[in-house]
């Protein structure tokens, strides 16, 4: 087993443990901290894929911005009494069993899939990614900018609606 393989298994185990921590955490703030840890572990996974770019973006955007945003939201919301009511009417056991069934299906499909037998190749250079982003996907890039504007406008009007005349 090469060093890269060892790193992959280590980071994979770490990210799964942290992910389980998210759903198991009793308090929301703990869940957000577990989420942060998962993001960092995933940045490590991206390093085993040879993609420093993705690892960096993962740390900055998910590890930094999104987690901090979630913590802010947590601080700003009143302590919410977490009632024993759930999004789905199914009991956690039924939900857990169906998700496990789904996982088993996904894993068997993945293991059988011949198109996923390829090993890791060198990741494309950042320059190539940039060329795609501002060439083929330039319209998508612009739309992503528009989406950020929509989110900004939406966040402001949603958050401030009672102050305006």
């Amino acid at each position: 087993m090469s060093a890269r393989d060892v790193l992959f298994y280590a980071y994979a185990a770490l990210s799964i443990v942290c992910a389980v921590g998210i759903v198991r955490a009793r308090r929301l703030v703990h869940a957000v901290v577990w989420l942060f840890a998962t993001m960092v572990a995933l940045a490590g996974i991206y390093l085993t894929l040879g993609s420093e770019l993705m690892a960096g973006v993962q740390l900055f955007v998910y590890g930094g911005a999104v987690t901090v945003l979630a913590l802010f939201a947590l601080v700003l919301t009143r302590p919410v009494p977490e009632l024993p009511a759930r999004l789905s009417s199914a009991s956690p056991w039924v939900a857990g069993a169906s998700v496990l069934l789904l996982l088993a299906t996904l894993i068997t499909t993945t293991v059988d899939a011949t198109e996923l037998r390829a090993g890791v190749r060198p990741a494309p250079s950042t320059a190539l990614v940039a060329a795609e982003l501002f060439g083929r996907y330039v319209v998508l890039f612009e739309v992503a900018g528009l989406l950020l504007t929509v989110a900004l406008v939406g966040a402001i009007i949603v958050a401030r609606k009672d102050d305006a005349s």
Binding site: L146, L147, V150, A151, V153, G154, I157, K161
Partner: peptide, 12 residues
């Protein structure tokens, strides 16, 4: 872009 503005529209 079709669903994000709708979230804001519903929230306003």
């Amino acid at each position: 872009l079709t669903s994000l503005p709708l979230i804001a529209l519903l929230g306003l």
